[in-house]
Lab assay of single mutants.
Amino acid sequence: NQASVVANQLIPINTALTLVMMRSEVVTPVGIPAEDIPRLVGMQVNRAVPLGTTLMPDMVKGYA
């Protein structure tokens, strides 16, 4: 099963992502693939992302 990117903490709206904010986990539904974590660093979320939430492509500005 493919691992997805999951929020390791509450990520406030418009926050630029850092490695410490994300972890990989096998979840359903599948979100952004864990191998894209390096690409996500520095990108901003367009909404608040609660701890444990799977990051979906539409949550990250410029990802989709």
Rank of each mutant, 00 (worst) to 15 (best):
A48E: 15
S24M: 12
N46W: 05
V26I: 06
G52K: 11
G31T: 02
E35W: 10
L19M: 05
R23S: 14
L17I: 07
T53C: 02
P29D: 12
M21C: 02
M21K: 04
R39V: 05
S4I: 02
T18M: 04
E25Q: 14
I32S: 02
V26D: 03
G52A: 15
P57S: 03
E35L: 06
E35Y: 10
S24N: 06
G62C: 02
V49M: 11
A64S: 12
I32G: 00
E35D: 09
P38R: 13
P33Y: 08
N1M: 04
I11L: 05
L17R: 00
P38K: 10
D36L: 13
M43S: 10
L19Q: 06
K61Y: 10
M56R: 15
R23L: 07
V26A: 08
P57F: 10
E25A: 14
P33M: 12
I11W: 01
N14E: 09
P29E: 07
P12A: 08
E25I: 15
L19C: 03
R39M: 08
V49A: 08
V20Y: 14
V5Y: 01
R39Q: 12
L40V: 11
R39C: 02
A16Y: 12
T15Y: 09
I37N: 06
A7M: 06
N1I: 14
L17N: 00
R47I: 13
M59H: 10
V27D: 03
N14F: 08
V5R: 01
V20D: 10
A16H: 11
M56A: 13
S24P: 11
P50V: 14
I11T: 03
N46G: 07
V26N: 10
M22I: 15
V27G: 12
Y63E: 05
A48I: 12
V30S: 14
V5K: 00
K61P: 12
V49W: 02
G31V: 03
Q44E: 08
R39P: 04
L10K: 12
N14G: 12
M22P: 00
A34G: 11
V45E: 01
G31M: 03
I37W: 06
P50G: 11
V27N: 07
L51W: 12
L40Y: 04
Q9Y: 09
V5W: 01
E35V: 11
Q44G: 12
T18P: 01
I32T: 03
Y63R: 01
P12N: 06
R23V: 08
